[in-house]
Amino acid sequence: MADINFARAISQALDEEMARDEKVYMIGEDVRAGVFTAQAGLVQKYGEERVIDTPISETAIAGSCLGAAIAGYRPVADMMFDDFMLICMDEMKNAAQWRFANGGFIKVPIVYRLPMGGYVGLGADHSRAMFSPVMHLAGMKVVVPSTPYDAKGLLKTAIRDDNPVCFFEHRLLYRTRGPVPEEEYLIPFGVADVKKEGSDLTIVALGYMVQWAMELAKEYEAKGVSIEVIDPRTLEPLDIDTIVKSVEKTGRVLLVEEDMTRCGATAEIGMQIMDRAFDSLDAPILRVGAKNFPIAGGPMEKLILPSKNDIITAIDKLLGR
């Protein structure tokens, strides 16, 4: 098992799937060069016909994927920033709904790769984590990987899925490293990963926040607190069973995401826990996320985005410390 970074894992997944199926192609702005270097070398290998560079036309990129998918192709669109997907939300909504609204017999295999996230100081226009808007598009699958291993296995599954998939890639994860097997593997959607087992408290974290949850869980471990960390990995489909099982064991749950808490993905997860495991809760569900503000630029962004301290405060509160 080699230790590779997240970006390399993504580009391996793209490479393998493009080699496996000639119907797979990439499209997006600056996709040949690759703004976040997650696809280095692919244009040289597969040519410009399969690594299609575009003008700055998000609407056309997103909508063209739908047209090509209807006609039997499997486009992988690089949207560069998930903030930009709001430009083409109509197209993504149509991609999500096309099958259902046209009789249920058309396959729409698309992957919208959505580089995302804060803590880089890129301001209100380039820093959002927008899971919940796409969770509102019935028919759209939503994937939020947190490790190189998950990124590769989930992206390969996403490309082979016959439905549109939003695939969120946090920019700070690109350089994180982790073990990835040499041999081929796929990770099914709808299977949460228990990143660390524990008995006192459950943290359900999304994307980059999984890294923080793991670091803090280790710190608390040293203090004698056993924290279980769950990474749902896919928000649609959502593996609520694994989360419920954990909550039943620990009785306390903290939900952590980078998006605004208002109507965020964790609001949905929290409500589902209430439905399924209310009687197991020993304390109210707590959430940590961004304040309900646009993301400030530069160093001020940390006043808006969730911090490790916010998580520590919430853990302590849940544990009554």
Binding site: T59, A60, I61, G63, L66, D90, E91, A101, I106
Partner: peptide, 27 residues
């Protein structure tokens, strides 16, 4: 909609068809 006949599906939002057509053209 009927893929066999070359009818890719219908959508009621005016102007939605432009980028979809682009994708069909790419295909």
């Amino acid at each position: 909609a009927n893929l066999e006949l070359g009818l890719p599906g219908y959508w009621g939002t005016v102007g939605t068809t432009f980028p979809i057509t682009l994708g069909l053209g790419i295909a």
